[in-house]
Each structure stands twice: as structure tokens, then as C-alpha cells.
Design a binder for these strands. Structure first.
Lengths: 221, 221, 221, 221
DNA sequence: AATGAATGAGCCTTCATTCAT
DNA sequence: TATGAATGAAGGCTCATTCAT
């Protein structure tokens, strides 16, 4: 009995030790990623050193390389994280939308919310991503953040066309890309000239909707 | 006699030397800029070294610093050159336009022509420009290429509004930026999927015009 | 009762634990040494990290330092082990030899057997040993593997001289070293050009014996 | 006339400038190689840093990489230099030899002279060379110093066999290697125990000659 | 004006070792 | 005893810039 208890307690101890280590490990990665995000945003890819990230994260230099094989790998993790965050937000928002108006407005507003809550993050992720592509032409052609989103818009447009809501003569892929680009204006221009959020959003939403909407309703008159 | 000859020949020599030097000086700068453009486009800002530019230009390493105080200065010269080129082309084209349709289509076509004639140049100038801005936050806030163009579109839009051709509820600055961004799609997406030039151009032109054009209902009064 | 049981079981537990611990301790050291040998041979001293050794041995990184104070200490343990192995084999073989012919042939064959059974081990031990010597000039002047073996040959030669079998004008130490070096050829050149073992061995044996054996003319008197 | 003089003097100036630069360039390489030799010998390959070499040579850190693409490349240059030096010395010496006795003795003496004049150099070149081989298994299989020399001995032996001076039952390649290894003893053991040069040389020469010489002359008696 | 050898601060990365558990 | 996350000094190398000619 005692033996079993001892054995068990030992096991418990080991487990808790392991658990604590795992927790610590996970924490370190989190802190590194948070620091990386901050610095990549503030200084850009080339002016951020692994050392800086480590110091800001409060860990040793070498620890960085326990979690990322590379400076590049760290950046890609940052990009992936950002992409996943925005993607999740938009997905949630769009799920509740029924009309294209709502979709466009929702996507724009969600992006803008994210941009305002995380100033510069989307811009940094986007800009750095372009660099990566050039530097490593034969490396795994990291699927661009934008490509997936543009494809999403293309699908929305195609559905709109089938329903007669969107001009039939559009090429969904091209226009999908155009819509994406307009929505991306929020990540660059949001805070310029103190343009107010509402004003900004309304203008862009109208712009897109008017460009898309087929003159069906207006024809029958 | 000997003196006069010497004097004269010296003067002549100096003149021709100076002339040649000026010519040579201008030539060297040209060649450096041409080399810089090629390399900045092919490799991007960070992966292009002054030494590479000099070698490609066929001049000594040190010569680079006779014409540019800095690597950064060289890049800015490249950006300014590119901007001036495109600007001139568009200006010429738009001068002959009478309707907004023509203006939009003309601007898009001119940009696309430039992009196809100089693949990657606009993209490189744009991308690198963003880097500069971050790296030197207090330095002369280099006027963005895009800002001027966006302002141009804003003016076009304002005029259109006065003439009742464009929705009155648009903020010219914001929509000017949106139009610019859509036109910039040509510099990124032009060659994707072998989309044919005509197809691409038509789609984007329609997109912009439909977004801008006010319904006839609003014209009367 | 409970106490006694507890006490007894505790004692039992301790004993078995201790026993197991000892066994485990010995096992861990063995496994580390085996892993170290493999890696030192495959990659050489500088390209083998304690972490690699630990992983290959299937123990934690820190465990390495429970058994070796140092990476260097681990290497020296490996060298000592290798030396001991070969030494034991040769000692056994020579014990049964009566003539110098047998001794030379036996030593060569034993070395070659070892080299073929453990490819690269002797070479690695030898090469690494040289490094150690240079890196730690004031440290305990690790007795060279070769020095002891050379001394062994010197003794053999001296005996041969006394018996009139070996040239009297040889300096046993120098020639001992020469013999050793020739025998060491097997560890470098054994597998070159697929030279057959027999051929190789015969050549080297003849070479050494002819160099050593005194002419019969000098025997009488 | 004056013009031509001016032109000419300019040309002369340019030439002398180029010449001086070339000279300076050559000098830097020389100094770097000399420093590299000293440090590789004193500390071995792994404990010598490019920085150390540069500092000892009296040039900047980066200058090192103007002359050697790599630390490894620098070491290989050192090895090649050493090999060339010894090779030239031996070649000169052997050219004047008529008998094998002279050849063996000459080669040994030359090597020993070199070793005494440049203590440790041969040893360092040899030892480091072995490391290189392991570290870069697929790299250009740098022809070993020893392989060429062994081949040289093999040729000597073959000729000796044709002339009936050397045992017919030897495989020239194997025995060539054995002879080389014995001669290499001088680079390792020369200064051990203060063995006197003459004594050492004589012993090794006898050893080799007795191993090689066929008992022709002694048969007819 | 032109050259190109020289410079050295600074970057990314590795790895032998420690220590909290 | 055993673990493995954490450490940070040190290494090899790059490249924007200077300077003697």
C-alpha cells in the first residue's frame, strides 16, 4: 500500500514536473512570438534581430533557436498567426451575413477592427511576406495571405452572378482580387488624415457594392 | 612659341577634357542608375549591394559613392526615376482624354504597358519605398509615389462630382485612394495565370467605372 | 505491524532500488560510451555534440554530465576504451607466439581484424587524440596510445637483438616506433582499392621482418 | 609633344598605380598565408579563427575574405603551399641521386631538414588534412599530400624491382605506402627524447633499405 | 574623376554547459 | 538519479563605406 502510494506519488510528481515543463515550453514560444510580432511590426523584418526578439521575450539568445529553426521560420510563424487570427474573425462575421452588402461591410469592418486593435500588424505581415517570396524563389511557395482571401471573394462573386446580383461580365478571379485590394486599403490608409472610421468604412463599402451590383432591380421600372 | 603652343594646347586639352569628363560623369551616373534598377528589381533592396551595382555598371566600387552619398540615396534616385517615367506617360495619355471612361481606361492601359515593358520595376519601387519609410521615420518623409497619384484621382473624382457624373456621397480622397489601389493591381497580377491583357484591362476598367458612375436618376433636377 | 511492514518494505524497496540504480547507472554509462564511439567515429570530435551522444544513448541531455565532467572527458574515455580493447586482443594473440615472425604477423592480423570489425574506430581515436594534445598543452599529458605500443615493440626488438635475431645497430626505440607506424598502415589503408586482406597483410609482414632480421653471417662468432 | 608627354605620364602613372595595387594585393595574400601557417601550426585548425589570422597579418577582418572564400579555403592553401615546398626540396635532392640508398637517405634528410626548419608545419598540414576529408565527404576529394608521395615511392620501388634490386614479391603500392609512413616518422618523432638527428636518420634509412633490398649481392658468394 | 583594396561593426547561428524540477 | 529547457559566449561571414593612389 505504502509502496503503491510512493510509486503513485512519484508518478504524480513526474507528471507534474513534465506538465510544468510543457507549460513552460509553451509559454516561451508564446512570449517569443509576441515579442516577434511587436518588433516585426515596429521595425520590419530586416531590422529585427533574433537577439532583440529574445531579449524582449525575456529569454536567452539561444532559446530562440529552440523554437524556430531560423529567423525566417519565426517570421513565417508570425505571418501564419496573423493570418489565422484575421481569418477566424472574418469567418465568424461572415457566417451571420445573408446579403452581399452585409458581407462586404462585415469584412471591411472586421478588417478595420483588427487593424485598429493591432496597428501595423497586417501591414507588416503583408510587406514581409513579399520579401520572403523574393528571397527564397525555390522554397516552398508559401501560399500568400492574399491569394486565399482573393479566392474567397471570387467565390462570393460567382454566387452573386448565379443569383443575378452581380454583373455577369465579370471574371470572378480578377474582380475578387480587386475587391480584396480595396478592402486592404484599410490596413494602409485607415489612420491617415484622421479620417474617421465610420466615414472611411461607408465610402469603401459603397464603392465596392456599386461596382459589383448588377442593375437588375433598376431595369424593370 | 613653345609657351603659346603649350598654353593653347593646354586650354584645348582642358576644354575637351572637361567636356569629356562631363559626358563621362553623366554617363557613369546613367549606367549606375540603370544597373541599380536592374538589380533592385531582380533582387530587391536588401540583397543588392553597392558593389554589385558598380560591377554591373562597369565602374569601380568607389565610383558609386561619387554619385550617391549612400545606398539609400541610390535607391531613392531609382524610385524617383521610375515615378517620373510613369507619371510622364500617364500625363501624356490623359491629356487627350475627354471622358472619365477614357481617363480610367487610359490610365490603366498606360500602367499596364509600363509594367509589361518593365517587368517588376513598379513593384520593386513600391515595395522598397515602404521599407525606406519605416527605416527612417524622422527623415524627410519621402512623398509616397502613391500619394501623388491618389491625389490626382481625387481631383478627377471631384470634377466628376461637380459635373454630376460621379456619386455625390463619395469622399474624393478616400475613393481616389481606392481607385489608385485597383489600378495598382496591374503591377502585381498582370501576368498571373496567363490572363490576357485585354480581358484583365476590361474587367478592371468596368469595375472602376461602375463604382464611380452616378445613376442617371441623379443627373436631372 | 504497519510500521514494520512499512520499514521492511521500505528497506526492500531501497535495496532493489539501489541495485537497480547501480545497474541503471552502469547501463547509462555504457550506452553513452557506445553512442559516443559511434558518433566520434562517424563525425569526428568537433562535429559531435554531447546532445547528440545523449540522444543516441536514449538518455536526457543533462545525464551526460552525470557521467562525464566534460565533452573532452567523454572522448578520453572512448580513447581509453578503444586502446584497452585492442591491447587486450593483441596481448592474447602474442602470448601464443614463439617467433618474431609470428609476433609481427599476429600483431598485424589482430590490428587488421579489429579495424575491419570496427571501421574507423582506431583512426578516430588516433586523430582525436592528436587534437587533444594540442588543445591542452599543460593538461595531464595524456599518454599516447601509440607511445605504449611503440614501447612494446621496442622491448620485442631488444629481445631479438640479444638473441642475435635482429640487427645490432638498431636503436630499439626508434625502430619500435617505425614498426608501429607500419602496422598502423592497416588502420588507414586497409580498404583502399579493395586490396585483399591477405595480400596486404603478407606484404607488410614481409616488409617488417626483412627490415628487422639480422643476416645469418652475423650470427656466428 | 607636351601633350604626348602628359598623356604618356598619365599612362605611366596609371600603370604604376595598377602595379602598386597588384603588389599590395600580392603582399596581403603573402602575409595572410604566413600568419595562417603560424597559427594553424601553433593552435591547429579549429582553434584558429580568421580574425586571428587577419590580426597577425596586420590587416582588417574583412580582408581575409578578399583572398580566401572561406576559412577552409585558407587552410587548403596552407596545405598546398607546404606540400609544394617540401615537394620542391625533395625533387631537387632526388635529381642528384643515383642509388636507392641515396634516394632513401636523401628523402629522409630533406624531410627532416624541413621539419627542423619549420617545426610542426608538416604535422599540422597532415593532421588538418585528415579533418577536412571527414568534414566534407562530397567536396572535391582533395588529393592527399601523402597519396602523391606514396605513388612516387611506388614508382621508385617498381624501378628497383625491374633492376633486381628490390624484392620481387612486393606490391609496389602497398610498400610505397609503408615507406612513406616510415619517412613520415620524422615529422612526428624527430625531436622526441632529444634523439640526435644523425642517429635518427641513420636508423630509419637502414630500416627501409634492409626492408627493400633483395639479397642478390649476397647470394653469389 | 576614378579605382578597388581595405576596413570592422554587426549579423545569424551553434553548442558546451547549467539548473530548476 | 534523471531530465530537458535555458543560457550566452563565441564563431564564421557579410557588406556599406573609406581612403590611398
Amino acid at each position: 500500500m505504502l509502496i503503491r502510494m510512493a510509486t503513485k506519488s512519484k508518478t504524480v510528481l513526474e507528471e507534474s514536473t513534465l506538465a510544468r515543463q510543457h507549460k513552460r515550453k509553451a509559454e516561451s514560444r508564446q512570449r517569443l512570438l509576441a515579442a516577434a510580432r511587436q518588433l516585426f511590426v515596429e521595425r520590419g523584418y530586416h531590422d529585427t534581430r533574433p537577439q532583440d526578439i529574445s531579449r524582449l521575450a525575456g529569454v536567452g539568445h539561444g532559446t530562440f533557436y529552440l523554437y524556430f529553426s531560423d529567423k525566417k521560420a519565426c517570421f513565417q510563424a508570425f505571418v501564419a498567426l496573423t493570418q489565422a487570427e484575421v481569418d477566424a474573425l472574418i469567418r465568424v462575421r461572415l457566417a451571420a451575413c445573408k446579403t452581399n452588402e452585409e458581407r462586404v461591410y462585415g469584412a471591411l469592418e472586421t478588417s478595420m477592427d483588427y487593424v485598429q486593435a493591432n496597428p501595423g500588424v497586417l501591414k507588416a505581415a503583408w510587406a514581409g511576406h513579399q520579401l520572403m517570396a523574393r528571397e527564397d524563389p525555390q522554397g516552398a511557395p508559401t501560399p500568400s495571405i492574399s491569394d486565399e482571401w482573393a479566392a474567397g471573394w471570387a467565390k462570393v462573386i460567382l454566387n452573386g452572378q448565379k443569383a443575378g446580383m452581380i454583373w455577369q461580365d465579370y471574371d470572378p478571379e480578377i474582380i475578387g482580387y480587386a475587391v480584396l485590394v480595396v478592402t486592404s486599403v484599410v490596413s494602409y490608409g485607415a489612420l491617415r488624415k484622421g479620417a474617421e472610421r465610420e466615414h472611411f468604412l461607408t465610402n469603401l463599402t459603397k464603392f465596392i457594392l456599386r461596382a459589383l451590383r448588377a442593375p437588375k432591380a433598376s431595369t424593370p421600372s
